[in-house]
Design a protein around this nucleic acid. Structure first.
Lengths: 221, 221
DNA sequence: TTAAGACTATGCGTATTCTGATTGTTGAAG
DNA sequence: CTTCAACAATCAGAATACGCATAGTCTTAA
């Protein structure tokens, strides 16, 4: 994730950014509302971590300025953890709120949630289903933490399924999306690749992640 | 919004529900996890308000059971407002978390946010008749909560009937829609499959969901 | 040349669908 | 009230379709 941290207390912002780095995310630090606004307008971030009280433009004001046009989800970080403050923050358009002092694990979790959510809406950088994470950018799939190597076709197949988690995706849909066939090829390509995919994903475990809906298609989850 | 409140402390749940009523929302109250699960399976809610500690099935467990298939967003309500608890709740699949004591305004705000968000993502596609839910996307039928496995033909048949709930669907209509026959096949395919469907749907119970309209066709409900 | 991935061919086991015969119901005519 | 014919429901077995696995072929890129 690319994260913009808007926070005037340097010790806090550095602590957060170093921790986020370790978790594999990249951060940009900014200590006032004015600069924050500039960066938001000019660069692409996945999430914004916003302290409520910052110089020049206050956090809430900043949200007001952002409102209307599309922007990354905002998590407000604040020393005031009164409900009234939380309400104010959320009303102003924040997507989440975390009071200080906070736990880094919780911060990370919330950031990731925001990220997933926004991605799912404005389609795609990683999709999460049960304990499986599909990273579209990196073409990488992990299940309960450890990597699973997929071939290109397998990945495409999984991706098409993952676009509609839980829903039944018809065979023709799969053929169309993963192969570009607009007709029924008289072969069993689909079956073969799906079989392989299945093996890799839940290699023999009960509780398979891909269900078969006979004579219709397949479904994830 | 239609809200399911899962909370064993009657005073709390009544307070919330009355307030929500005033705000123009309708609530269903449930005081244990088991009933909650039943209701979630059988009825349609926009949001679920879930107390963490409830009888029979714990809040976190309940989330585990829901995970995987689509369900309304869940806001956890809990006396424990430690970060570790919050993390646990969110990890388990909750969509938001609010610690007691809380402010009603904040609760309402958060519920509305959850609702808006879920509306944006998916308007799931299903038909409900009595205690039966036909989920078209998932190609799945449940009756009073538990799944009923149907073959493709059976599903199609049911679907054609369900498109006109209560109305009589003629035999020729069924043959046409489910088989693509534009004529009367001189067999009793329809009868056979309808018989099977009936068995699966209301396996011997009185109060069958499919009625026979003699010499015309069938009707649902 | 090798190796990996994508596709084809084939066969097996099983779930599903269909057929035809049998039994059960219903409602109107006698 | 009985009888009868039309219609509906059920059953078992035959026929079929479908999904899955395995093994082999083809293509491309290292």
């Amino acid at each position: 994730m690319r994260i913009l941290i808007v926070e005037d207390d340097a010790s806090v912002s550095h602590w957060i950014s170093s921790k986020l780095h370790v978790s594999g995310h990249s951060c940009k630090l900014v200590d006032n509302g004015e600069d924050a606004l500039k960066f938001i307008k000019n660069e692409v971030f996945d999430v914004i971590l916003l302290d409520r009280i910052i110089p020049k433009i206050d956090g809430i004001q900043l949200l007001g300025l952002l409102a209307g046009d599309p922007h990354p989800p905002v998590l407000i970080l604040s020393a005031n953890d009164q409900t009234s403050d939380r309400i104010e923050g959320l009303r102003a358009g924040a997507d989440d709120y975390l009071g200080k002092p906070f736990d880094f694990a919780e911060l990370l979790l919330r950031l990731e949630r925001l990220y997933c959510r926004s991605k799912q809406v404005a389609s795609s950088n990683f999709i999460k289903i049960k304990d499986m994470i599909i990273n579209l950018e990196r073409h990488e799939v992990t299940r309960s933490g450890h990597r699973i190597d997929l071939t290109n076709k397998e990945f495409k197949l999984l991706y098409v399924l993952a676009e509609h988690p839980g829903q039944t995706v018809t065979r023709s849909m799969l053929l169309e999306k993963a192969w570009g066939y607009h007709f029924d090829p008289q072969t069993n390509v689909l079956d073969v690749h799906l079989s392989k995919l299945r093996n890799k994903l839940d290699g023999g475990s009960k509780n398979p992640i891909i269900r078969t809906i006979r004579s219709v298609g397949y479904a994830l989850g």
